[in-house]
């Protein structure tokens, strides 16, 4: 093969699809007259065809899981986020509960002032609310951060938050309170009371 190297270069340019039209013409003309170069060119094309004929192989099964198992541990935070994303109902419910309980607890801590439902028949001495003897209080009584002494009669429910009901012991015999009596001194009771109240209010609105 005594052809100039330039023809081999043209062949490779051709195979790279980067040959200029001029050079391609030159190559084609040369191949017509040169058997050696022609077989060289055929061999190159065959080589490429052979290499490309090798079947495409696939990664072994479980390849991905094997890689994932070898990765360094992910941040816990992300795992948590993903869990929330996958369980939207639980997330919503727990978020609601957290906010709810949170606001109620704040309410418990902030409401340290003495207060009582207004009623003309009630007497207030320091932090003690007295239902005087012989008098009847119509309506519910709610006492916050104070005690309640029942000597008379209450026509309604009695709720004491953070305090004692002194008249309670006479209750069974005297029957001075017609409604429910409730004493709330614990955080949990406070929450429970609120839940009940909200439910009751909701039911009333619905009614």
């Amino acid at each position: 093969m005594n052809c100039p190297d330039i023809y081999t270069d043209y062949m490779h340019d051709y195979l790279d699809e980067e040959i200029t039209p001029d050079n391609e013409t030159k190559l084609r003309e040369h191949l017509l007259i040169c058997a050696d170069c022609q077989s060289h060119f055929q061999e190159l094309k065959k080589t490429i065809a052979l290499v490309q004929s090798t079947s495409h192989i696939q990664a072994p099964v479980n390849f991905t899981s094997a890689v994932m198992a070898r990765l360094p541990n992910e941040k816990k935070q992300v795992g948590l986020k993903r869990w929330f994303r996958r369980h939207p109902m639980v997330t919503a419910a727990s978020l609601f509960l957290t906010l709810m309980v949170g606001s109620l607890i704040t309410g418990w801590n902030e409401d340290q002032e003495f207060s009582v439902s207004k009623n003309p028949n009630l007497i207030i001495e320091n932090n003690t609310v007295i239902v005087p003897e012989g008098k009847t209080v119509n309506g519910d009584i709610v006492v916050k951060n104070g005690d309640l002494k029942i000597e008379g009669q209450v026509d309604g429910n009695v709720t004491v938050i953070n305090g004692d009901i002194n008249g309670e012991k006479y209750l069974a015999s005297a029957g001075q309170v017609t409604g429910e009596i409730e004493e709330i001194n614990q955080l949990f009771d406070w929450l429970w009371y609120h839940m009940k109240k909200i439910t009751k209010d909701t039911v009333n609105i619905v009614k």
Partner: peptide, 12 residues
């Protein structure tokens, strides 16, 4: 952001 599951898809 630290999501490893997303990387699994890239591997696939």
């Amino acid at each position: 952001k630290g999501d490893q599951d997303a990387y699994g898809e890239i591997v696939e």
